[in-house]
């Protein structure tokens, strides 16, 4: 479980204080799939880095399984619990061969070599990349590289995985590969925190945080959030096309049920 209490983060810049997180309070339970959306500069990535103590609060607290992340003696346990996957796979991959890259984190934990081998094999299998274990990462597509980065986190066996815009640099096929993997990890019981600019991806979560100006201004189901087309526009975010088209048709006098989110629902309503 992750709990934030009045979480604040202020960056000091030459131009003055920049309040990136302005007093957040929330609880994320084990096994939840939470998406975080918001425009650039709303605080999403700053928040992401607080989940495993890459950044520490400048005010308030964040607890991972009850452990205060700002207490240095909790650092390793926090990082054993929460893994991160970032936007750019090229800046995460460190080794010259795929399997070495996946093993990297484990080697740093001082785990026995045969145990490492076993966990690396399992992790590569989980992302369907076993055939590529002796490849150079530079020979892989963006989606494949991102799956290697995910395998690295799977090998670490963290219960929580934070994804910070993992598909931003990928083509449609790569995006689908990554999202499929994320949903599978969630089905296996992992807690997923998923930051994205793609609303169709966020719509797959169970719960969505909407961030604006360093605050969480909405915390609700994807359906309630994405069918509020006017609010999405105000925030500078996209609504799914089906919700947007439904809103337009209602204005033109179509009698449609409320909260249409998907193409299937709109098709049924128009029949």
């Amino acid at each position: 479980m992750i709990r934030a209490e009045n979480l604040r983060h202020v960056y000091k810049t030459a131009a003055g204080d920049n309040v990136a997180l302005d007093g957040l309070n929330f609880t994320i339970c084990d096994g939840e799939f939470v998406a975080i959306i918001g425009t650039n500069g709303s605080g999403k990535s700053t928040l992401a880095k607080h989940f495993n103590a890459l950044l520490l609060p400048t005010g308030g607290k964040i607890f991972v399984d009850g452990l205060d992340t700002s207490d240095e003696k909790n650092l390793w346990r926090v990082r054993e619990t929460v893994g991160m996957v970032f936007q750019n796979p090229d800046s995460e991959i460190v080794a010259a061969i795929v399997e070495d890259d996946v093993a990297f984190g484990l080697e740093n934990l001082g785990i026995a070599p045969e145990k490492i081998r076993e966990r690396v094999d399992l992790a590569l299998d989980a992302v369907n990349m076993s055939d590529y274990k002796n490849f150079a990462p530079s020979k892989l597509s963006g989606g494949q590289k991102q799956r290697i980065a995910i395998a690295g986190v799977i090998a670490m066996n963290t219960r929580v995985i934070v994804f910070d815009e993992p598909t931003a640099m990928l083509d449609p096929i790569g995006r689908r590969e990554v999202l499929t993997m994320v949903k599978r990890l969630h089905a296996q019981g992992k807690t997923i925190i998923y930051i994205t600019h793609f609303m169709d991806e966020a719509a797959q979560a169970q719960r969505v945080f909407v961030m604006e100006g360093g605050r969480i201004i909405r915390d609700d189901t994807p359906r309630n959030i994405f069918t509020d087309v006017k609010e999405m526009k105000r925030l500078g975010l996209d609504a799914p096309v089906a919700a947007e088209l439904a809103a337009r048709l209602r204005r033109k006098g179509f009698k449609l049920p409320p909260k249409i989110l998907t193409a299937d629902e709109l098709a049924e309503a128009l029949q």
């Binding site: 083509d171 449609p172 096929i173 169709d200 799914p240 096309v241 089906a242 947007e244 088209l245 337009r248 048709l249 033109k252 193409a263 299937d264 709109l266 098709a267 128009l270």
Partner: peptide
């Protein structure tokens, strides 16, 4: 080519409309 039609095209197809719309205005 490993590409997908734009969401609006996919939506219209699902609604049984085989014409192509490039914008929400056209779809409406």
């Amino acid at each position: 080519a490993g590409l997908e039609p734009p969401p609006i095209t996919q939506l219209l197809r699902r609604l049984g409309i085989n014409q192509i719309a490039l914008t929400l205005d056209e779809a409406e």
